[in-house]
Design a protein around this nucleic acid. Structure first.
Length: 288
DNA sequence: CACTTGACCTGTCCGC
DNA sequence: TGCGGACAGGTCAAGT
């Protein structure tokens, strides 16, 4: 899925496109993707106007003037794509989208009163769009437990060090992926940040020196900010709110670069499995 | 509690 | 060409 930079790219795109739009109709084809009662939909979604688009960790929130919000998790393959202009068909020079919508991955369609539409697409059906009172969002278990935003001013290297201590017997990669330690890191930016800090993903947290944690903190902020600037990373499933791909993968140093040279030392990058996830490392730069 | 593994889904790729 | 298995940017419920 989209990690923090991808979700932030979607948020910023949507925030320019949908506030002020009034919802006229909604359709959905998979209950787990849209687990909301017909009564709530009728009373708090249909006829409501979008007031704001926010993000916390990897969660998107579309606030409505009904005091309800759509809380959205894209998980592995979710997309939020807005279609507002006349369609010419994917691939047509006048069409910016890379896909025709809706398609077989479309789970939820919101139709606005001006005829524009917002599609929630999700090939693997792990993601969801939940309608709930805006004021209840902070009470969701995930929101109560999730760690600090890594690009916030209060996220210092000491904060990272202290929050990781609870999991000092785990490997650093598993801990970076733990959303209760810090928010928003996933498989791509864990690998990229660890390469930047020259730390092997299987290193136990208890063995990390302060200098390494300080560098890791700096590298995580660097890759996340760079990725946001580049519009996120794209595989075949990720697109932004306008249906366009991000370009961070052009800048990736290790992620999905197995068998290619390390940009720092030229050694062939290896792929292994750490914390149950495909993991990319330079065996020299990130030696134990 | 901390930690690991499997489950949730569909689609694609790779080896036989 | 078909088939089986591994794998894909996440999280949660179980198990030890």
């Amino acid at each position: 899925m989209p990690e923090l930079p991808e979700v932030e790219t979607v948020r910023s795109g949507l925030s320019k496109l949908i506030p002020g739009k009034k919802i006229q109709a909604v359709s959905h084809d998979w209950p787990k993707s849209f687990p909301n009662s017909a009564a709530d939909v009728e009373n708090f979604l249909i006829g409501a106007t979008i007031s704001d688009v926010r993000r916390r960790a990897k969660v998107l929130m579309i606030d409505l003037d009904s005091q309800y919000s759509l809380v959205i998790h894209l998980k592995m393959t979710g997309q939020m794509v807005f279609v507002g202009e006349q369609r010419f068909g994917a691939g047509h020079p006048n069409d910016s989208l890379v896909q025709d919508l809706p398609d077989k991955s479309t789970r939820v369609t919101l139709e606005f009163t001006d005829g524009s539409k917002l599609f929630f697409n999700d090939q693997r059906k792990f993601g969801w769009v939940k309608l709930m009172p805006t004021i209840e969002i902070p009470n969701i278990d995930f929101m109560k437990k999730v760690g600090p935003e890594p690009l916030s001013v209060e996220f210092t290297w000491q904060t990272l060090r202290d929050r990781m201590q609870r999991r000092k017997n785990s490997n650093i990669k598993a801990v970076l992926l733990d959303q209760t330690v810090l928010a928003g890191i996933g498989n791509i930016y864990a690998d990229e940040g660890l390469w930047g800090a020259k730390i092997h993903p299987t290193t136990l947290v208890r063995d990390l020196k302060d200098a390494q944690i300080k560098l890791l903190h700096q590298e995580l902020q660097y890759v996340l900010a760079l990725a946001i600037e580049k519009g996120g990373s794209s595989n075949h499933t990720y697109v932004n709110a306008e249906g366009k791909k991000g370009s961070y993968m052009d800048f990736a140093r290790v992620f999905r670069r197995e068998k290619l040279p390390c940009p720092r030392c030229g050694t062939t990058i290896e792929k292994s499995k750490v914390a149950g996830r495909g993991t990319h490392t330079c065996p020299i730069c990130q030696a134990h």
